[in-house]
């Protein structure tokens, strides 16, 4: 018997079929989430624990990210704005880009990294150590206890964390401006919000609830489907991050297009 490693070339057709299989399976997973997830028993305590896990422990991460991006954005844009004699528009521009796009997407992507990996690995290792089977044998619902709580926690906490990141992003922009061109905080805030409608803030913040749903659902799904050992768990964690991130960006494209259709552009 030969123990030499033979590396099998992947058959492309097979992998496309497998991919489609997975998509179909994910569809069924989502369907069962909506069909069976919102029934008794309500796992309220676990939901709160997950909200704490998703939220409280992400404040530092998203806060620092927001602060840094706000400052960098101010630095990068000032030069261009000065060229056009529009430096006074800086707060305006910052608020617009942070609240409408950078804040929500950046928050979601940072959280996809932290939570996708965390959820994928945790659920995956619960699967391989038979903890999920144990819940089922106890006549309890892994879907309610593990999946619904995590997905809801993400849906609720993503917008909250986005508001927080936006605020720190604006603050970062202000700090940078204050250091390089003394600006009055009141003036900064006033200018920042002149060109922003509340409906925009609301829509752009709430779209992250969809991103949260994506992260929770994808990571739980990939964790649930783990088979094998620790290697498979690592794979699930990695795939959760990758798949969530890609889907967030695609969903953003879709949501922005849709909201432009529904609410019209800011300029109009």
């Amino acid at each position: 018997m030969s123990l030499r490693l033979t590396i099998r070339p992947t058959d492309r057709r097979e992998s496309i079929a497998q991919f489609l299989d997975k998509v179909g399976d994910f569809g069924r997973f989502v369907a069962s989430f909506f069909r069976d997830g919102f029934r008794r028993p309500w796992e309220v305590r676990e939901l709160l624990r997950q909200m704490d896990e998703v939220g409280t422990r992400s404040f530092l991460l998203t806060g620092v990210t927001g602060l840094a991006i706000g400052a960098v954005l101010a630095m990068q844009s000032r030069g261009t704005l000065i060229q056009f004699g529009a430096e006074a528009m800086l707060p305006n521009m910052l608020a617009l880009s942070i609240i409408k796009e950078i804040g929500p997407v950046l928050t979601a992507l940072v959280l996809a990294g932290r939570l996708g990996a965390g959820i994928g690995a945790e659920i995956g290792s619960m699967r391989v150590t038979e903890q999920i089977d144990a819940i089922e044998v106890m006549a309890l619902r892994p879907l309610n206890y593990l999946v619904v709580t995590r997905v809801l926690a993400c849906v609720i906490m993503f917008p909250v964390l986005t508001v927080w990141t936006d605020a720190l992003g604006l603050f970062g922009g202000y700090l940078e401006s204050a250091l390089s061109s003394q600006i009055d905080p009141r003036l900064y805030l006033d200018t920042a919000f002149t060109s922003i409608r509340f409906s925009d803030v609301l829509a752009d913040t709430m779209k992250t609830a969809i991103f949260g749903g994506i992260v929770g659902m994808v990571s739980c799904y990939l964790g649930f489907r783990v088979r094998g050992g620790t290697r498979a768990v690592g794979q699930a964690a990695m795939q959760s991050v990758v798949a969530s991130s890609v889907l967030i960006i695609l969903a953003d494209l879709f949501v922005v297009r849709l909201s432009l259709l529904l609410f019209g552009d800011i300029a109009s």
């Binding site: 619960m126 150590t129 038979e130 903890q131 089977d133 144990a134 044998v137």
Partner: peptide, 10 residues
């Protein structure tokens, strides 16, 4: 049911 690895919730 006693699972092979115990399946305690860690």
């Amino acid at each position: 049911y006693l699972f092979q690895g115990g399946a305690l919730f860690d």
